[in-house]
Design a protein around this nucleic acid. Structure first.
Lengths: 202, 202
DNA sequence: TTTGTACACTACACTGTATAGTTTACTTTG
DNA sequence: CAAAGTAAACTATACAGTGTAGTGTACAAA
């Protein structure tokens, strides 16, 4: 079913790809519809045949990118596996997720667009932060099982996210550092887990 | 000498204040020179008499905000004071610095302006990150004195900053959470120091 | 106290350009 | 041939920056 794109559908994809690239690199305001058309090798009219306005275009784009990105598998706490091993696994997944080019691209587009609209920004970040819930339930379970000390799951989750985002998200989203390599990710997950467990392991 | 502003100097200040507000709330692109003039209760021509272009205006603004913000006192490691106490003090200072409204405002303006120019963004962040150097030398000294385990000062500094920025910088810069109250700051400094020291204290 | 002078400020019209979105006349493709 | 695409000109608007004629203010000379 995937190669069976009609010409029209292909044009649509081209336009979305062009918009993704342009919005990511230049931002919404500085990207003209003429430029998107040119980048997509499509006439401007065709852009408007598929998307009735620039606003609709970026919204559709963000919605579709969202689809691609959202697949949180939800890791459950297993009482029989060592906490360290589990935590490293969990952190590694989060690091992989935030290192995904598509995820970064979505964030760049959304940040550029919502940066000056705190309410929309907040909603956006809350959607993104669904993972935090998964981590929080893992932390709660690990704590209740007695393998971690009693803790404020919210605080602990924020700490863990702070640790990994400082190296694996913010610099990449701002394009001031390249995406982490696999060994770097493993090292980050291990160091973060070790720091965390030194304090929280029962 | 402070109240002795000529009319011209006052107008200049009004314009900069208006620009600060507008650029912070709406962003560079969406803020017109007409709007700035109106906000400053000044004619558009006066804006151009003081600043030859919009570009010069925002650059001047950022430079002046930079002056106000940059005053890093540099904390030195004292072998005779308990590490925990010193670290909390150091973290608290960093938290205060990043909670400063002027600092946040500068960051919002600069982010909005540089977000899509990675090179300029990088330079900006490197200037901002001067504090990180101070923290790193404290960490090195503390480690060499034997009070902290041997550590990679760079990594350790990133971890500490990750911990505090997750609560005291990113949410505030994005306007999705209010600036921390004094007790919240103390709590954050203590929790971060304790987590860190559980792992790194010798 | 009045008058003269320099200069910054104001109001407003104007130029030039960029850009969202539309229209039209014609072409390509399934 | 019908649906979708193309190129290019067009409308409407916003906005950076300029030019100008006149006004307000500070300050000094008379």
């Amino acid at each position: 079913m995937s190669a069976a794109l009609t010409r029209s559908e292909k044009k649509r994809q081209d336009i979305l790809a062009a918009a993704k690239q342009a919005f990511q690199q230049e931002g919404y305001d500085k990207t003209s519809m003429d430029r998107i058309a040119k980048l997509a090798s499509v006439s401007k009219r065709t852009v408007y045949n598929h998307f009735e306005s620039k606003e609709v275009l970026i919204m559709t784009l963000m919605a579709e990118m969202w689809q691609q990105v959202m697949h949180s598998p939800a890791v459950h706490f297993k009482p029989d596996v060592p906490v360290r091993e589990q935590l490293i696994e969990l952190l590694l997944r989060e690091i992989e997720a935030m290192s995904d080019e598509e995820f970064l691209a979505l964030n760049r587009v959304a940040f550029g667009y919502f940066f000056f609209e705190p309410d929309a920004m907040k909603r956006q970040l809350e959607r993104m932060g669904v993972q935090e819930t998964a981590m929080m339930s893992w932390l709660k379970a690990a704590s209740e099982s007695g393998q971690l000390k009693p803790l404020d799951a919210n605080q602990a989750s924020t700490q863990l996210h702070g640790l990994i985002k400082a190296e694996a998200f913010w610099p990449q989203m701002l394009r001031i550092a390249p995406v982490l390599t696999e060994p770097e990710r493993v090292s980050l997950a291990e160091r973060s887990a070790d720091l965390f467990l030194s304090h929280y392991q029962a």
